[in-house]
Amino acid sequence: MKNINIKSALLAFTLLVTLVSCDNDYESEMPSIASIAVSNSAFSTLEAAAIQGGVAVVLSNSNPNDPSGKYTVFAPTNDAFAKLGLVDAGSLGALQNSFLTNTLLYHVSNGNLFANQITDGNTSASALGINRRFVSRGGDLYINGSKIILTNVAASNGTVHAIDKVMIATGVNIVESALLLNDSKVFKTPELTFLVQAVITSGLAPTLADENNKFTIFAPTDAAFKAAGFATIQDVANADPVFLQTVLLNHAISDNGTFTSEQTSTTATTAGGNTLTYSPFENGVFTILGNSNTVPANMVIPDIQCSNGVVHLIDRVLLP
C-alpha cells in the first residue's frame, strides 16, 4: 500500500506541476498549498490535520509574514502519519490540538525554499521558530530524520516538498519534553510515565535539563519498562537510584543530538561508558542493542527534536 500511495502522489503532483507550468503568467490560477492537500488523496490525513490544527485557512492564503507572500511546506504523506498510528481524521483525536498545531507549523517555512537550496549541513527556520537540519545520505536528502521524496511542487502561495515521516519538535529540553508526554500534553494517553519517574529517582533530571548538555536519548516507553520487570511506577520509585542512574546513562549519548539520518556509525559510547550497537540504517531507522540485551530495541517514534538534543522513543530498555 505504501508504494501505491507514493506512486499516486508522484503522479498527481507531476500532473499538477505540468498543468501550472503551462501558464506561469497566471499564478492566481494555481492551487494553494491547502488545495494541493485537498485534491490529492495521498495527503488526506494532512488535510484533516490542517483542519483540526487550525492552519488550513492560513495555508490557503498568501503569507503576511514574508515579503514574497510565500510559504514552503514539507508535507507528510498519509504513510508518514500512519507511522505514528494516525491514519485518518478520527485517529488524529489522539493528539492534543495545541501540539498538533505546533507540529504542523514545524513543517512550514516563510518564503520559497527550492530544492537547489536544500543542501547537506544547512538549516532552515520553521514557522515555529525552531531550525530544521538538512542531511544528505546515500543519495537521498533528509530534513531532520525525514526523507524528502518529492520536491518543488508549485502552489499559488508557495512551494511544497513531500516527506516520508512527520517531524516532531517540543521546543523544550529533554526532561520537559518527557514531562509533556507524561502529562498528556502531546498524546492524550501518556507514554513515558515510568521514564519520568526513573529520571526523578535517579537524580539525573538537572543534567538532562541543562541546555549546555546536548544528548541523543533513547527513551523507553512505559511498555518497555514493564517488560524489563517494573510492574508499576512505584516499583521505579522504590528502585536503587544508583542502579537507575546506570541504566538511564546507558540510554544517553553525549553528542549534539543526532537524528537517525545523521547516524552513520555501527556503535556508540554511552554517557555511562558502555557500548550500544546499531543495525544497518533501513527505511529511515535502525535498531539498538545494549551490551546485555539479546533482542534489540526498535524505534517507536524517532527523531523528536528537543532544545538540548534529539529523543528517539524505543520499545525496550537498553541494559548495560
Rank of each mutant, 00 (worst) to 15 (best):
K2V: 09
N3V: 07
I6D: 03
A9T: 04
A9G: 11
L10W: 08
F13P: 00
L16W: 08
L16A: 12
V17F: 01
D23Y: 07
D23C: 10
N24I: 08
E27D: 05
S28Y: 08
P31S: 15
I33A: 05
I33F: 00
A42N: 06
A48G: 10
A48F: 02
V55Q: 00
S62K: 09
S68Q: 12
K70V: 09
T72N: 03
V73K: 00
P76T: 07
T77P: 14
F81T: 05
G85Q: 14
L86N: 00
V87G: 11
A89T: 03
G90L: 01
L92P: 08
A94H: 09
A94D: 13
F99N: 01
F99A: 14
H107A: 04
S109G: 09
L113M: 04
F114C: 00
N116T: 11
G121Q: 11
S124C: 09
S124A: 15
S126H: 04
L128C: 02
L128I: 06
S136T: 06
G138I: 01
D140Y: 13
Y142C: 07
I143G: 07
I148D: 08
L150V: 03
T151H: 01
V153Q: 09
A155G: 14
V160A: 12
A162Q: 06
K165W: 13
G171P: 10
A178Y: 01
L179C: 04
L180I: 12
N182S: 15
N182Q: 15
K185C: 06
T189N: 08
P190H: 09
L192F: 15
L192I: 15
A198V: 11
V199Y: 05
T207M: 08
A209Y: 07
D210P: 03
E211A: 12
I217Y: 04
I217M: 12
F218H: 11
A219D: 05
P220D: 13
P220W: 08
D222A: 13
F230L: 13
T232K: 14
Q234T: 15
N238C: 05
F243H: 09
L249G: 02
N256R: 08
Q263W: 12
A268S: 10
N274G: 15
T275S: 12
L276M: 14
L276Q: 06
L276G: 03
Y278E: 01
F281H: 12
E282V: 09
G284L: 04
V285P: 00
V285R: 01
F286K: 03
G290N: 06
A297S: 15
V300C: 04
P302V: 05
I304C: 04
Q305A: 05
S307C: 02
G309L: 11
L318S: 00
L319S: 06
